[in-house]
Amino acid sequence: MSRLRAPARSIHPARTEMVRGIGPWSGLVLAVVVGVVMYDAAPTWQGRWVAVSDVLREYGIVFGVPLALAAGCWQGGRERRRGFGELAATLPRSTLRRLLLAAAPAALWPAAGYLGAAAGSSLAAWPYVSGGRPYPSLVLADAVAIASAGVLGFVAGRLTPWRLTAPLLALVSYITLISTYADNPRQWLNPAALHHYFWDRPVWWFGPAAMVWTGGLAAAALLALAARRRAVAVLPLAAACTAAVVLVQTGNGLWRADPAASRLVCDDGTPQVCVSAVDKALLPEVSAALAGLNGKLRGIPGAPARWVSGPGAPGTGMYWLGGTRITELGVTSTTPPPGDAQLPSPYEAAVRGRIADPAAYAHSAVT
């Protein structure tokens, strides 16, 4: 008597959607592109967590959002281009569930590719960062923005299945992202907005608010397209608008002075060499680079009492009092302590935790 064969295990539709089509390729392309660009720009971010966040956001969002929009748009127009609309309407699943399954690859794969590149960049920066901590909430907010772009692209593809919609949508989004860096409160609605002060830290709710802003827009668009009661789309839309108002009204206050990062760390030489805490790992390198110059300056009238690099250095226009920028306290003019001389940023002269050219760095201190 022959043995009965066990019935073959059916493959879940979600798995089929996730492993086929444009989704996996979009995630792989984004991970490779961001990884290569981050590797090439490593000297500009490898020593400070704020720089890691800025450069990741600059390249990850600027490349990731247009890519996710295009992938989602192509995925969304697939059924209408292939004439599967009537057949899909006969399936027992609800329209919303079916569209969620179809949109998932274009939303999740690019976000996963970005998270992979972000994780690799953080590991590459870890040995060379002197202090502070990474900002995982901002990385997650960027991933949500990329996933939301995939959903919005999917909705656009469902409504306009024209083949050129995807590249046009990607082009428009790219131009929009790179043209809204203006220094005004509305810039923080742009997921690619950057912050260039290395001695600041984001408020704890910045990342979650950014997730509500971009995620709420995507959820509202998808519900308006596919929900049985389209009025429910008002709820995520209201949440997104509330988050947008909070972000715009807070403006540059989304980043606050970080006393732990801005405090000075000094050696015991004469003259003293002082750097900000975010660069304290470079202090031995800086002291060694200036050793010859300091030896020549000892005993000379008018020689600096200490070299200072960071927010308290002369000429930077950023002086600190109790961990708060004096400009934030309403003081318009200050003078540095007597005897202080500005020291070039060791971060800009360092490559992977070492001053690349000590002689040139020492020369730049007196020119």
Rank of each mutant, 00 (worst) to 15 (best):
G85W: 14
E86S: 13
E86T: 15
L87I: 14
L87G: 07
A88E: 13
A88N: 15
A88D: 11
A89L: 06
A89Y: 09
A89G: 10
T90F: 06
T90D: 11
T90K: 06
L91K: 14
L91M: 08
L91Q: 12
L91H: 06
L91D: 10
L91G: 02
L91P: 05
P92H: 01
P92G: 06
R93P: 04
R93K: 07
R93H: 12
S94Y: 12
S94R: 07
T95H: 12
T95R: 15
T95F: 11
L96S: 11
L96W: 10
L96K: 10
R97Y: 13
R97Q: 11
R97H: 11
R98Q: 15
R98G: 11
R98L: 06
L99T: 09
L100C: 08
L101M: 13
L101N: 09
L101D: 14
A102S: 07
A102M: 10
A102N: 06
A103M: 09
A103E: 06
A103W: 09
A103C: 12
A104R: 14
A104W: 13
A104P: 09
P105Q: 07
A106E: 04
A106T: 03
A106V: 02
A106P: 05
A106F: 05
A107R: 11
A107H: 02
A107D: 00
W109C: 04
W109H: 07
W109L: 05
P110T: 11
P110M: 13
P110R: 06
P110Q: 01
A111K: 03
A111Y: 00
A111G: 00
A112G: 12
A112P: 02
A112H: 03
A112T: 12
G113N: 01
G113Q: 01
G113D: 00
G113M: 01
Y114M: 00
Y114E: 13
L115M: 13
G116A: 13
G116Q: 01
G116P: 02
G116L: 14
A117W: 12
A117F: 04
A117G: 05
A117L: 04
A117C: 09
A118I: 02
A118T: 03
A118R: 08
A118N: 02
A119T: 13
A119K: 09
A119H: 11
A119F: 13
G120W: 02
G120E: 01
G120L: 05
S121Q: 12
S121M: 12
S122K: 06
S122G: 14
S122R: 15
L123Y: 04
L123H: 15
A124Y: 00
A124W: 00
A124N: 03
A125D: 01
W126T: 15
W126E: 11
W126H: 14
W126G: 07
P127L: 13
P127G: 09
Y128S: 15
Y128R: 03
Y128T: 09
Y128H: 12
Y128F: 15
V129N: 00
V129G: 06
V129T: 02
S130I: 05
S130P: 06
S130F: 00
G131K: 05
G131T: 08
G132T: 04
G132F: 07
G132P: 01
R133Y: 11
R133W: 09
R133L: 11
R133Q: 12
